[in-house]
C-alpha cells in the first residue's frame, strides 16, 4: 500500500473541526488532485500526511508503515521521503537560489556539515540537476527574493526534488500566480509525475487545471469527502455541489 488514510480527524486547539473522518487511498504514480473551497480542510489534510500537523484521531499508512504517531528520527525520515510545495513558496528570501535548493537535502546531511554549509560536489551537482528540471539553473546564484513568483515556485519545486521524494505534496501551488504561469508550473508537476514517476497530491482551485492534469480527484467540503472519482466525471451538478449554487466555472488556459 502506497498511502492509505483512514477515518482521519483533525480538531485544532481553537475548536475548529477541520477534518471529519477522511478516508482514501493513493496508488503509486497517481496524480491526485484535492479540490474544495477555502477552509474545506485541504491544507490540513496535506499537512497531516507529512505530519506538520498531528492528526487528532485516525490512521495514516505510508509505504505499508503506520506513520500516524512516529517521532524523532522516524518522523524526519518520513518527511524526507515526502516533498512539499507551498502556496507562498516559502523560500529563504535572503539566500541564493542554489542554497535554497540544497536546503532540500538537509535530512541526508550531518548537523555539522549543514551548519557549516559544507556541501559535497555530488550535492551541488544534484542541486543543479533539480534546477535544470524546472529550467531555472541560470538563476542559481541570484538571491531568492529577487525572482518573480513563478520563478520562486520553480525553485521551491527544485528544493523538494532535492529530497528525491516518493510523494510530492503541493498545497495550492498556483493560487498566488497568474493564469499563464499557473499552467507552466502545473506542467512541471506533470513532468515530475510522468518522467520521474513521483506520486503527486495537489490541492487546486481551478477545475480546468484539474481536468487537464489530474488522474483522479477528491473533493472536500467542510472536512468531509463528498466526491471521489475521475476528473472527466465532474459535471455541472457536481461542480455546484462542491463550490456552492452561486459558483460559475471559470476557464483558465
Amino acid at each position: 500500500m502506497f498511502l492509505k488514510v483512514e477515518d482521519l480527524h483533525k480538531v485544532y486547539p481553537s475548536g475548529t473541526h477541520a477534518l471529519k473522518g477522511v478516508s482514501f487511498e493513493v496508488k503509486e504514480g497517481e496524480f491526485l488532485v484535492v479540490i474544495g473551497l477555502s477552509g474545506s480542510g485541504k491544507s490540513t489534510l496535506l499537512r497531516c500526511i507529512n505530519r506538520l500537523h498531528d492528526p487528532t484521531t485516525g490512521k495514516i499508512t505510508f509505504l505499508d508503515k503506520d506513520v500516524t504517531h512516529v517521532k524523532g528520527e522516524e518522523l524526519r525520515n518520513l518527511r524526507k521521503s515526502i516533498g512539499m510545495v507551498f502556496q507562498q513558496f516559502n523560500l529563504i528570501k535572503r539566500r541564493s537560489v542554489i542554497l535554497n535548493v540544497l536546503s532540500g537535502n538537509l535530512a541526508s546531511m550531518s548537523t555539522f556539515n549543514s551548519v557549516s554549509e559544507n556541501f559535497s560536489e555530488k550535492d551541488l551537482e544534484d542541486a543543479y540537476k533539480c534546477l535544470d528540471i524546472v529550467g531555472i539553473s541560470e538563476k542559481a546564484n541570484v538571491r531568492a527574493d529577487a525572482l518573480s513568483g513563478g520563478q520562486q515556485q520553480r525553485v521551491a519545486i527544485a528544493r523538494s526534488l532535492m529530497q528525491k521524494p516518493k510523494l510530492l505534496l503541493a498545497d495550492e501551488p498556483v493560487a498566488s500566480l497568474d493564469p499563464a504561469t499557473s499552467n507552466s508550473i502545473m506542467q512541471y508537476f506533470e513532468k515530475i509525475n510522468k518522467e520521474l514517476g513521483t506520486t503527486v497530491i495537489c490541492n487546486l482551485h481551478f477545475l480546468s487545471l484539474v481536468r487537464r492534469y489530474a488522474t483522479r480527484v477528491i473533493a472536500l467540503k467542510a472536512g468531509e469527502i463528498i466526491y471521489e472519482g475521475f476528473p472527466e466525471e465532474i459535471d455541472e451538478n457536481w461542480f455546484k455541489t462542491i463550490y456552492g449554487e452561486e459558483a460559475e466555472e471559470v476557464e483558465i488556459r
Binding site: 506538520l52 524526519r76 518527511r79 523560500l91 536546503s103 537535502n105 538537509l106 535530512a107
Partner: peptide, 9 residues
C-alpha cells in the same frame, strides 16, 4: 514549515 517538511532536524 518548509524546512521542517524536508525532514531537517
Amino acid at each position: 514549515e518548509a524546512i521542517q517538511a524536508t525532514g531537517a532536524n
